[in-house]
Design a protein around this nucleic acid. Structure first.
Lengths: 229, 229
DNA sequence: ATAAGAAACATGATGCATCAAACACCGCAA
DNA sequence: TTGCGGTGTTTGATGCATCATGTTTCTTAT
């Protein structure tokens, strides 16, 4: 075979590295919502000049994982209740689609991978290792898009997760078993090549897990109803 | 009311300007697929330094509206048949959702706007003004997300359109009435606040319009089956 | 066809101009 | 005297241009 088509060939840039590190920090919830980021400060803490940081910030703003409050103010966005609701609606459609495709296309090794991810996640939860659990949960959701061979969908999901990152990170441990219980149903459906069941299961997973986050957003709104503009 | 919350406050940058111009060129199909772009050349033709162009290109790569073939090679992507199929699947779900919401939330002025868009598009087609028709068609699809008040979905749609731009541009005029006929059904459904009908209509629109593009992709594949790598 | 040299390009660093927000200072009124 | 509002200055951060460097790619000659 002449040429293998790499979907995203990762180039080794400083800008790429900075992007990856900041993105990871966002997903892991290591930046508080509304925290202000300055290019110079980040550059100093990473030991580079401003240029690669500038590149990374620009890309994250494009992802809507960061927002420009004003000309010289970049902040971690505060996700509103309405925005989270919309993201959840979108996820239900997209991940439902991914789950359907995954159920149709899954090979034996794919099923094994899903199985392993659940097992690892189960262990992380038992150990109260929330950071690990958070990451495994994300990997599981992405895996469906991977198995379904949907690269565009995978990209969209990546961005959505980047936006939800800070929010999910602070709620994940409250979810308890609701964050993983439905994964078993997803796995079973994929194993049976049952598209309908797979979609139903992933929808249940997103819905139930999301309720924890919605409650948090409700209480936040109730608490700071009209103090902030 | 204290503060009005602008969703996207547009800052007046050179980088922003360059982004907008290149993005428009992509959507209008003014760059051929596989065309190579160099930062320096663009900078010269726009009369700026490389910095703003660099910023714009970086953002467009993030959108997957441009691709990095190798370290120093940025090209307009060639959309494969599989990729277009996936994008269409995604659009069916997302725009279906947008149409449902639009049907629920549309005000009188929104319906009037849709009506006007169709009328203008009808005229553009009659005049064989394909560029105008192309833009109005896009505006109509975006309008449903706007009316449905789905800002996240709107952003995703924007990016998808940016990716499909070159492809749609070269096929639009082949679509003939198929590109607009279903818009009437969408309008009627929104007017009747009938979510189900609105979703069905937009799905029909995307599907039928997409068939023209799929045919083109099929013939392209058949023609250049194994000449390119 | 291959290899070596030359041209070209992107990346990353740095410097400068600009611009906005914070802050302190000052005057004025209660 | 104290509190408040307005004004001018200062600080700090970004946008853009330019420069240096290393790599890639095109060209040309064998």
């Amino acid at each position: 075979m002449a040429g293998f088509n790499f979907e995203t060939l990762e180039r080794e840039n400083l800008g790429e590295t900075v992007y990856a590190r900041v993105a990871e920090a966002l997903i892991k919830g290591r930046f508080a919502p509304d925290a202000r980021l300055t290019i110079r400060e980040l550059a100093q803490s990473l030991g580079t000049s401003v240029t690669p940081v500038r590149d990374a910030i620009l890309r994250l703003i494009q992802d809507e994982a960061l927002v420009q409050k004003s000309a010289r103010e970049v902040r971690v966005p505060i996700i509103t209740l309405e925005r989270y609701r919309e993201i959840r609606q979108i996820r239900l459609k997209l991940e439902g689609l991914a789950a359907r495709e995954a159920a149709l296309k899954a090979k034996a090794k794919d099923i094994e991978r899903l199985h392993d991810l659940i097992a690892l996640n189960e262990r992380a939860i038992a150990d109260k290792n929330w950071a690990e659990g958070l990451e495994l949960n994300q990997t599981f959701h992405f895996a469906l898009a991977d198995i379904g061979d949907m690269v565009v969908l995978r990209g969209i999901l990546n961005r959505l997760w980047l936006q939800m990152g800070p929010l999910i990170a602070e709620s994940y441990h409250e979810g308890g078993r609701a964050m993983i219980d439905n994964h078993y149903a997803v796995l079973a459906a994929v194993e049976n090549k049952d598209s309908d069941a797979a979609e139903r299961a992933i929808i249940a997973d997103i819905t139930e897990g999301g309720n924890v986050i919605l409650e948090r957003l409700f209480s936040r709104r109730a608490a700071g109803a009209d103090q902030a503009n």
